[in-house]
């Protein structure tokens, strides 16, 4: 109860701060929509010229129109901040208060999402209107609910991964290289560039099992595709693994914290 109230006020504060950076965030959203828009253009071009991808044109178009929002919602940018606060000692300010620094991280991510959503939705809507003939959304109902649950789990997974990578700063000087590698992998493997179903059949079993799928692609599959019950179980499994690893690595890290500076 106390934590819920703290979270509420932290989110309010985050939104106030984010509003100062609204133009900055708006520009960032513009960059987020460019990559799926390019994919959309070339794939539709290919289909128009007679190409036959393994998914329907409607699925492909709807997927690429929605993917920027669905990738943004469970994303997290905490690892860099966390690593800095460990390395420079800012973490100390949080450890002496009766409130976890991660509550602040969560509030920061939620606040940022609220503002970004307001900025990104119009851009996506424009994309949707341009390609309206091929965009198909399911009617409101159970499917949207499951989608939301899956999205929440995806968010928890990326946030946990951020904590794990951030925690590396307890032991290593610099985590930016690890982060760069992680984003490279995530870009391809999460399906935020093109749907995973387009990959060659030989690699599909691997793609379907790896965790990055459940951070972007899977929630979208829930919404506009037909994922198996097995896949849901797999998401729950990865979710538990990620959260567990985050808890363990944070606990271990705190033990070896030396609190640079004051």
């Amino acid at each position: 109860m106390r934590l819920a109230r703290v979270l509420r006020i932290l989110v309010i504060r985050e939104v106030t701060i984010m509003l100062h950076y609204r133009w900055w965030l708006a520009m960032l959203q513009l960059s987020n929509i460019v990559a799926p828009a390019i994919s959309l253009l070339v794939w539709r071009g290919a289909i128009a010229q007679g190409s036959t991808p393994p998914v329907t044109e409607t699925f492909l178009t709807t997927y690429l129109v929605l993917v920027s929002v669905v990738a943004m919602l469970p994303s997290s940018w905490t690892s860099g901040f966390l690593a800095d606060s460990i390395r420079l000692g800012g973490l100390s300010s949080w450890l002496v208060r009766p409130c976890s620094t991660h509550l602040n991280g969560i509030a920061n991510n939620i606040g940022e999402k609220v503002v970004k959503l307001v900025l990104l939705v119009p851009l996506v809507a424009v994309l949707g209107i341009i390609f309206r003939t091929e965009v198909e959304l399911p009617p409101l109902g159970l499917r949207w609910l499951v989608f939301a649950v899956s999205l929440l789990m995806a968010g928890a997974m990326t946030f946990s991964l951020d904590i794990v990578i951030g925690s590396l700063a307890f032991w290593f000087e610099d985590v930016t290289a690890v982060n760069r590698l992680r984003y490279l992998l995530a870009r391809i493997l999460s399906g935020s560039l093109i749907p995973l179903a387009l990959f060659p059949a030989a690699v599909i079993p691997f793609l379907n099992a790896q965790p990055f799928r459940f951070m972007v692609s899977f929630p979208l599959e829930v919404l506009i595709g037909h994922p198996s019950g097995q896949a849901f179980a797999l998401q729950v499994g990865w979710f538990a693994t990620f959260v567990g690893t985050a808890v363990v690595s944070w606990r271990l890290g705190l033990r070896s914290y030396q609190g640079a500076g004051a």
Partner: peptide, 14 residues
Amino acid sequence: IPVLILTGTSAAAV
């Protein structure tokens, strides 16, 4: 990867 996948599925057509 995405470029190869694109051209792979549509080589004959384009």
